[in-house]
Amino acid sequence: MSNEDALLKVTDLKKHFPLPRKKKKQEQAYVKAVDGVNFYINAGETLGIVGESGSGKSTVAKLIMQLLQPTDGQVVFHGNDVFTQSKKDRKQTQKKLQMVFQDPYGSLNPRMTAKEIVTEPLLIHEKLSKKELELRALGLLEEVGLGMQHLNRYPHQFSGGQRQRLSIARAIALKPDLIVCDEAVSALDVSIQAQILNLLKQLQKNYGIAFIFIAHGLPAVKHISDRIAIMYAGKIVEIADKEEIFKNPKHPYTKALLNAVPPSHPRLRKEKTLVQGETPSFDITTSGCPFYNRCMNAKEDCKTNAPELIEHEKHHEYACHYPEQASNREN
């Protein structure tokens, strides 16, 4: 991996949750929600993380935001490991690293007005007069396409899209360098989704904010990302530039995922070879490739020997012994 001066670098990140023991003497079993994840993100770019339920993508987000303590590994932001940094550095990290949550209903305190919601970060980190706070609140609301008339409203008086705008206004209040968006548009209607995606792109253009955009919907991720990582069962199985991953998917799971996306036009309907089965439950401990039992390319050694994530081509890493041949995704 090339990037020593990356904005954020995740190294060998692991999070294992202990499972309740059924019998006293039973050996402790773990859910390996995140199991050795490596990636980096540069200033001003967007990294999409795609995965299905149980892939561990949201756990990665929580670890980066230090809402969870890792079992192992590092998350280095601006050169500091976020888990071991000094108190002073932590303050700085908390300002420059922000998050937008999925649920526009649960992520805003129902008893706070829009003004209180967007100025809360300023209240915590900066000392401002009441007047200044009000001005900043107004500026932030305008930044995300809301206005003065919204200042004193409560969350339930906003639509889903407007709430997500509020969450974004709150996230940009401290002029962050990186925002982690965990399924930030998944709960929104199509027409509103596009508004929010455009807003994020606009903010990136204006302020050079980097995004980690976590989602299960491939089209939205493709639209907003520069690079895309595909997660499966706690591991990144493929990571590459956006165009590359769509034109030249190497991991059979990536290919299966692309195949499963419904067509954008009935003309593009096709007889597809669908991948069978579903994401394995976590407690299956395998020494081999986690995709082994669903994979069409799988051979005997995949069962015992887990492939490593290796940069096979420039900016294109994948973890597979028998990658797909370079056949373009037929249209």
Binding site: Q94, F101, G106, P121
Partner: peptide, 26 residues
């Protein structure tokens, strides 16, 4: 466990701030 409390945590809000502003009112 609600997301708005998690959200305040990611901002670096202190425990007293979270209890006062987010927990008690709810």
């Amino acid at each position: 466990e609600r997301e708005f409390v998690q959200s305040a945590k990611t901002l670096g809000a202190s425990n007293t701030h979270i209890i006062r502003k987010h927990i008690i009112p709810n």
